[in-house]
Simulated scan of single mutants.
Amino acid sequence: MAKPNKRLPERVVDIVCTKCKTRLFKYHKNGKGALVKCFIERISNNYCTEPCVCPSCGQVFARENMIRGIAAYKIIGGKAKIG
């Protein structure tokens, strides 16, 4: 499998918790599809104090994973969305 493009996409989106609507991080998203995974190197501002845990309500919204040899957060279905 090919590695993700090193050049950051221009589109920057806010990723928010679906339970409490707290901002989790700003992410350089490529494409127009659903939010499935977030490569850690594309996160520009991280508002979480603990990885993959919402700072407000404490809900776990993702799992740390290696995707195509690069560290990423695999989003748990329905726990985080583009806001």
Rank of each mutant, 00 (worst) to 15 (best):
K74F: 10
K21Y: 06
E41I: 02
H28G: 04
K29I: 00
G33W: 10
I15R: 01
C54T: 03
G58I: 03
M66K: 13
M66Q: 12
V60D: 12
V16M: 08
C38E: 03
A80W: 14
K79M: 05
P9D: 04
C17N: 07
K21V: 02
C20G: 08
D14F: 04
K6I: 04
M1V: 09
Y27W: 02
K32F: 04
K32V: 01
R63T: 06
K19S: 12
S44L: 14
C52F: 02
G58F: 06
K74S: 15
R23Y: 05
V60C: 13
V53C: 07
N65P: 07
H28K: 11
N5D: 14
G77L: 07
L35H: 05
P51H: 11
T22L: 09
C20A: 06
I82A: 00
S56E: 15
G31D: 08
Q59G: 01
I76S: 06
R7K: 13
R42W: 14
N65R: 15
A71K: 14
P55G: 09
C48K: 10
L8R: 11
L24P: 14
A71T: 10
V13I: 02
S44W: 05
P9E: 01
A2D: 08
F25V: 03
C17Y: 04
C54A: 05
S56G: 14
M1N: 12
F61M: 05
R23H: 13
N5F: 06
V16A: 10
P4A: 07
Y27S: 01
K79C: 01
R11F: 01
G77S: 08
C48W: 07
F25T: 04
P9R: 02
L8A: 13
S56A: 15
R42S: 14
K6D: 00
I40T: 13
N45V: 07
P51G: 09
L35I: 01
A80S: 14
C38I: 03
R7Q: 10
Y27T: 02
T22W: 06
K6F: 05
C57M: 00
Y27P: 00
L8E: 11
V60E: 13
R63K: 12
M66G: 09
F25N: 08
E64T: 07
I67R: 14
E64H: 10
T18R: 10
I15F: 01
F39C: 06
K81E: 13
I15G: 01
Y47S: 15
C38D: 00
P9I: 02
K37I: 12
P55D: 11
L24K: 13
G31W: 07
M66I: 14
K29P: 00
C48L: 09
C54R: 03
K32D: 11
R11P: 00
Y73E: 13
V53E: 08
M66C: 10
K19L: 12
C57R: 00
G33F: 07
R42G: 05
V13C: 01
D14L: 02
K74R: 15
G58W: 06
E64Y: 07
G69L: 09
T49Q: 12
V16F: 05
V13R: 01
M66E: 12
I43R: 11
T49H: 11
V16W: 03
P4G: 09
R23W: 06
S56M: 11
K29M: 02
N46A: 14
I75S: 03
C20W: 06
I15E: 01
K79L: 04
V16D: 11
F39K: 08
Q59P: 01
F39R: 08
